[in-house]
Design a protein around this nucleic acid. Structure first.
Lengths: 152, 152
DNA sequence: TGAAACCCCATTGACGCCCATAAATACCCA
DNA sequence: TGGGTATTTATGGGCGTCAATGGGGTTTCA
């Protein structure tokens, strides 16, 4: 499974293109679509992104909910309708659609934030501020994470 | 399996034709019918659509309901009787039947909404409003979707 | 024979593809 | 270990192709 780590800040050129960091691209080779899938975060001014395989998996999970139910509909409208397939050009760049750019307030630079199985794209300064408050909250509340036992 | 993602808004010309987005068409190549299947959504002012293969699949699922049951009969009437096969012209456009156009209030533009295994066609502004409420509901209820464990 | 549907062609604008450059990193060898 | 070289990555820009759109002509069925 893909694993996205670390933070990279790249420029957005005047054509709206931005290089996806090479380490992230390396996590996506061999998937059925050569690029990323991106959609608006519904909690933050950020773009959520992952590989196509994760979306396929999501689609299959969604199919197991009742067809035509309200929950099924909301998720479909929120996630799939809003997802953009951004194909890599030969240099590993993607074009960020207008809608996503506006949502995340990205202008001339974009921060790629590894989050494990997915990653996010932020306006760099906005992310710095967000990270600061998240760190403080974590320290104050002492959040912990229990490791999943590894099956053999 | 076909995977429809993202939203595309295309114009309906004065002949009633509308281009099906190229990425959606790409998901349908190789199916037994070169076009889409469309029917009225019974919850929303929208047109439900998919490839012919999914209809075949739905038909088989329907077969597993009790024959002659009310539910089976209702679904058959609602979906199959109402389904239209819309063939692509040489440019990848389809003609939307009068009945569907009226149901979805589509006039001079149509929004194609990816929903994973299927897609919908909406009047663009109506969908924007619908998506807005769906997003809010999803966020407020913290609706989540548990990923299907990936089989190995 | 008229309306509707299909086929073919033209336009244009966006996007994908290619090449060029520069900087940073990795690699190699003395 | 240091310097030098090769490779990869990020970035910029030009150009060709394809998708979306509009229109005209022709066939088909009622």
């Amino acid at each position: 499974m893909a694993l996205f780590l670390s933070t990279f800040v790249n420029k957005v050129d005047r054509k709206g293109r931005v290089s996806v960091p090479a380490p992230f691209r390396a996590q996506l080779v061999g998937q059925t679509f050569n690029g990323i899938v991106a959609f608006r975060s519904y909690r933050q001014p950020a773009i959520e992104a992952c590989g196509i395989d994760r979306m396929t998996n999501l689609s299959e999970s969604l199919d197991e909910l009742d067809q035509f139910s309200e929950a099924q509909d909301d998720l479909a409208s929120t996630i799939f309708a809003d997802a953009h397939q951004l194909q890599f050009d030969s240099e590993g760049r993607v074009m960020l659609p207008q809608l996503l750019v506006e949502h995340a307030n990205v202008t001339d630079a974009a921060a790629f934030i590894g989050r494990g199985a997915t990653f996010q794209i932020w306006e760099p300064e906005a992310f710095r501020a967000h990270q600061e408050t998240a760190r403080n909250r974590t320290r104050d509340q002492g959040a912990t994470l229990r490791l999943k036992p590894r099956e053999r």
